[in-house]
Design a binder for these strands. Structure first.
Lengths: 117, 117
DNA sequence: GCTTGACTTAGACTATAGTCTAAGCAGTAT
DNA sequence: ATACTGCTTAGACTATAGTCTAAGTCAAGC
């Protein structure tokens, strides 16, 4: 699969995919002509990167995880620890969002009363 | 209250508070010597800005809201609409976070099984 | 055999949101 | 009076994450 196909599959722009490769987040195979070649495993890995990004992990930290992943199964424990640490962060964020949502609802309610009366 | 006190109260740096003023998010009174003077109403407003920011609203959009707010009660309806729109966004984000959390837990579980066995 | 379209590179540019510096002024403490 | 602290300004600088351009290569269809 070419970078264009992968871009369509993942929703990342080709620019961004190249940028992720340059940063070290993904390692990419090449064909005889020097063009990037991707497979389904790359798609899965990109999707996981997107999840980490969506939950506020910085590329810097995703990169740390990525380096371990490319080192193979011996790094499973360390990767698990990173994810467990990140899980704590996500839980805290969810709490923050819930709290902010509560206040947002209250504010809207106040406005609604002001506007109705 | 000076900018230093407000900074301590809100957790924003003095730099950031000045930056928010420059951007138009907050309007600030001055004393005879030209120094910024804040009151409790400013603290409340900053705290609300922080909530909007924490829920992913861009300064650009917070600014739009701010301009209406400084125009007085006649803009209540419009502000309410902005908040209701933003509320939808926050709900969608919460769903995304919940979904990502689910996958994160699954991944951790897989690692845990790999590590334990 | 030429055009078209997708690919390649390095490096410049953008957006967002700060963060800091330099030079200077105001008010308080010794 | 002098030193100290906290404030003032404009504008330069930083971090993060892309986004795009220029110049060129390659393979397929006509």
């Amino acid at each position: 699969m070419t970078i264009g196909k992968l871009s369509k599959k993942t929703g990342l722009s080709a620019y961004t995919i190249r940028y992720y490769e340059k940063k070290g987040l993904i390692k990419v195979a090449r064909d005889a002509a020097g063009r990037r070649v991707f497979d389904e495993a790359d798609v899965e890995w990109i999707r996981f990167i997107q999840r980490l990004k969506d939950t506020g992990m910085l590329l810097r930290d995703i990169n740390r995880y990525s380096k371990l992943r490319y080192q193979g199964d011996s790094t499973v424990e360390e990767r698990m620890k990173i994810l467990e640490e990140h899980r704590k962060y996500v839980l805290a964020e969810q709490e923050k969002w819930a709290n902010n949502m509560k206040h947002l609802n209250e504010k809207i309610q106040i406005y609604r009363e002001m506007f109705m009366s």
